[in-house]
Amino acid sequence: MGFVDYVQAIIDGLLFGTTYSLIGIGFTLVFGVMQKINMSYAAGSLAGAYCGLVGPQLMGLPPWSVFPLSIAASGVIGYLIYLTCFRFIPLASPLATLMSTVGMLLLLDEIIVHSTAGMPQNYPAIYDGDPIEIGDFMLRADLVGVFLVCVVAMAVLLALLYRTRLGMATRAVAQQPVAAQLCGMRLQAVNGLTFVIAGLLGGVAGAMIGASVGMLSPLIAGPITVKGLIVTVIGGLGSIPGAIVAGLMVGAAENLFQALRNVTERDIYVMLLLFVFLVVRPGGLFSGRGHD
């Protein structure tokens, strides 16, 4: 392994890291408006991707239908998670929603395992063209596709947040919930919609993870939950730019560690990275709440 290979690993990691960015943004959005962590978020996103497979596998739809179906299903699951784990749960208790969402994480995991008999399911690539060669380096065409889809999803989100009335309400609730209500914004409606938006983003992430790995497996839920949380912490809770940068960073770091050591040790170093951040910069890259 030479220098070129390491740079190559970083490039691949950056491309795939956009999926982590999306998951991180989803955690951060919900934290922004509710000051709560939705532990079942990544599992919900993965469940959405599984639902997408119903289209081609059971309904005879063309393979590409899996992507829009995954995204839509994940949005619906996001709202269901809001209804079951947040809407009627006493929010004043810091542990209540943590318990309800961990419960939902396990439930979703079980549903996936039982409905697929635990077998991994093939998931189509977003694009299978030849790799693009730039000098010594090679860009995997499917990863470039994943990257582009994720970047578009982020752009749509930012436009939604900063250019629409709904986005204004989301930011207002995140920054100052009482004043937002005094302006006529409905807290529960905004919270519910935030879950749907986060769910849609998670659907994109879930679909793109499936597309770049080539399959879905219940075993993915745990690691992406952990990676998503790491991204959120490194980026700074409540910060969207932080989540984007941290997602790329974790993606690149994980691939580099994998190239330097091997796949079995990789996550150890990602955890060490988290540890370093918690010690050196506990507030995250972009500390401070309400930047969304």
Binding site: Q175, Q176, V178, A179, L182, C183, H291
Partner: peptide, 26 residues
Amino acid sequence: IALVPENRLVFPHMSVAENLAAGAYL
């Protein structure tokens, strides 16, 4: 009815103009 709340509670990360626009939300 509009309430100017105790401690003002402006939206800290929004511009002055955006704060005003938020007031006209309905």
